[in-house]
Computed example of a mutant assay.
Amino acid sequence: MVKFDEKGLIPAVVQDASSKEVLTVAYMNEESLQKTIETKETWFYSRSRQELWHKGATSGNTQQVVDIRYDCDQDALVVLVHPAGPACHKGSYSCFSDSLLQQETFSTDDRFAILNVLEATIAKREAERPEGSYTTYLFEHGIDKMLKKVGEEAGEVIIAAKNRDPEELRWEVADLLFHLLVVLREQKLPLDEVLKTLQERHGK
Rank of each mutant, 00 (worst) to 15 (best):
H89V: 11
G91Q: 08
G91N: 11
S92L: 09
S92H: 02
S92G: 05
Y93D: 01
Y93Q: 04
S94Y: 07
S94A: 03
S94C: 10
C95N: 09
S97V: 00
S97W: 09
D98R: 15
D98H: 15
L100E: 03
L100C: 12
L100S: 11
L100M: 12
L100K: 07
L101G: 01
L101H: 14
L101W: 13
Q102E: 07
E104N: 10
E104V: 10
T105W: 05
T105R: 11
F106R: 01
S107K: 02
S107Q: 11
T108H: 08
D109I: 04
D109A: 15
D110F: 06
D110M: 11
F112R: 05
F112Y: 14
A113E: 11
I114T: 04
I114E: 08
I114F: 13
L115V: 03
L115N: 02
N116R: 14
N116W: 08
N116S: 14
L118Q: 07
L118M: 14
E119G: 00
E119I: 12
E119M: 11
A120W: 01
A120L: 01
A120C: 03
A120D: 01
T121C: 06
I122S: 00
A123R: 02
A123D: 05
K124L: 00
K124E: 05
R125D: 07
R125M: 11
E126V: 01
E126C: 01
A127K: 00
A127P: 04
A127H: 06
E128T: 09
R129S: 06
R129E: 02
P130W: 00
P130V: 03
P130Q: 02
E131Q: 10
G132H: 05
Y134P: 01
Y134V: 14
Y134H: 06
Y134K: 08
T135Q: 05
T136A: 12
T136F: 00
T136L: 10
Y137G: 06
Y137I: 14
Y137T: 09
L138E: 03
F139Q: 04
E140H: 10
E140Q: 10
E140K: 13
E140A: 13
E140C: 04
G142E: 09
I143N: 05
I143L: 12
I143G: 07
D144F: 09
D144Y: 06
D144A: 15
K145T: 15
K145N: 07
K148N: 04
K148D: 11
K148W: 03
K148H: 10
K149H: 14
V150D: 08
V150A: 12
V150L: 15
G151F: 09
E152C: 03
E153R: 10
A154C: 09
G155H: 08
G155C: 10
V157R: 05
I158S: 10
I158T: 15
I159W: 12
I159T: 15
I159C: 12
I159Q: 13
A160P: 12
A160V: 12
A161N: 15
A161P: 10
A161S: 15
A161V: 10
A161Y: 05
N163I: 00
N163W: 02
D165V: 07
P166C: 02
